[in-house]
Design a protein around this nucleic acid. Structure first.
Lengths: 217, 217
DNA sequence: TAGAATCTTGTATGAGCGTACAAAAATCTT
DNA sequence: AAGATTTTTGTACGCTCATACAAGATTCTA
């Protein structure tokens, strides 16, 4: 009881190491290939160590997904903070959904396997819904002053579907590069907004809402 | 050798029965839950029967995916044949991608799990690419006379991504119905084509290409 | 109907996996 | 430094599943 401080530190270190290792294994081998033994080997530890620091594999899994989402989000937040116009914020959100070195087939495939699991496991589904809500909130902060609720809803769903669909395509066919994907999304977005609206978004004269930045960090 | 005729018939019957059973199990339990034992039980046969009629589980799996794709395609083809205008053909293609009773969470989830597998297994990837090429070909037959190659490519990718993304969304969040999904796709499509082009598509005065119908049945 | 070919059953085998655990090693406490 | 506590290791158990196979049931043939 008195040694709680030290104990917690080591425990947290190991947990983070193992989750990071799990993340690397996940990106390389997918959800299927993410076996306990492989995670421990990747972390340079003994096979039984997982059971000591985690209640079960699920805990590692959820930790890993949270870890992954946090990495993605940090990137988006950094870009959002730097953005001056709503259009720049839009670019931040879209490009943040295609991390520079991460738009590869194995990673796309891994990500899709999480979505497949979410269809069955309600815990995963919650994490994914959280992710969707963030995207939606970010888009709302860009389009908020311009679209009414219905059109915002519609546009958010379409853009989100476009992003997800391109990741899925990457996993299945791998016939598309990161830059091309981003261009396609913006082709879609530009066709959804009028020229006048696009001009307004680029002007930077909209009230800058800090909501997207504040809420999720 | 002399009894080849009879033997082949029974064998084909059982194979079809088993593949249909596999399909039902797949739709209900996903790729993970599609176990040999469950397939046989669903078909009302003994657990060992799979090994008699198939080399391995993979053969059943590929057969099942082909079976599923054929079902989907037949629906699209029937609608394509009945269509009189290019716009009607477009509706056939889009609505064919959201079969009436099939846009449900478990089915979406099952379909996504196949895509996840395709990211790892090259055989699945081929089947999915075939599927994408069909969609692309169908869209080409609609937009062919109107778009140049580059714009056709772009539009096909965007529409395909939109379709896939909505299925993925269905699997993960299940916050969208079939009619809503179709409306969203058409909102996307209408924003991609000009009013003048939409009018042209609806007019039915384009040359009707039989290619899409002929090639895939 | 007897025998042969085909089909079906039920079970056994072995691999891969998550998890539990006893023992060993390392670290901390006094 | 000796003992207590925490951390790590390696292994073993139990489970699920695909696959193989021997034995039984059915259908065909002559």
């Amino acid at each position: 009881m008195a040694t709680q401080g030290k104990r917690t530190r080591i425990e947290d270190i190991r947990r983070v190491e193992l989750i990071a290792a799990a993340h690397r294994v996940f990106l390389e081998h997918g959800l299927q290939g993410m076996t306990s033994a492989r995670i421990c080997r990747e972390a340079g530890m003994s096979p039984g160590i997982l059971a000591y620091y985690f209640k079960g594999k699920d805990e590692v899994l959820f930790g890993m997904v949270r870890y992954n989402n946090r990495l993605l989000m940090e990137d988006v937040i950094a870009r959002l903070v730097a953005a001056q116009t709503n259009w720049a914020r839009l670019e931040a959100v879209v490009e943040g959904n295609f991390p520079a070195q991460a738009f590869t087939r194995p990673i796309a495939s891994a990500w899709i396997s999480v979505c497949a699991e979410a269809g069955v496991n309600e815990q995963y589904a919650r994490l994914q819904r959280l992710f969707h809500r963030r995207l939606r909130s970010n888009l709302a902060s860009v389009f908020g002053g311009m679209f009414d609720a219905a059109r915002l809803h519609e546009a958010s769903l379409i853009i989100a579907a476009l992003l997800d669909g391109l990741w899925l395509r990457k996993a299945v066919a791998d016939d598309i590069g990161r830059d091309e994907a981003i261009i396609l999304v913006f082709t879609g977005i530009r066709s959804l907004v009028s020229d006048r609206e696009e001009k307004l978004l680029r002007s930077g004269r909209e009230p800058k809402r800090a909501a997207a930045r504040r809420r999720w960090q």
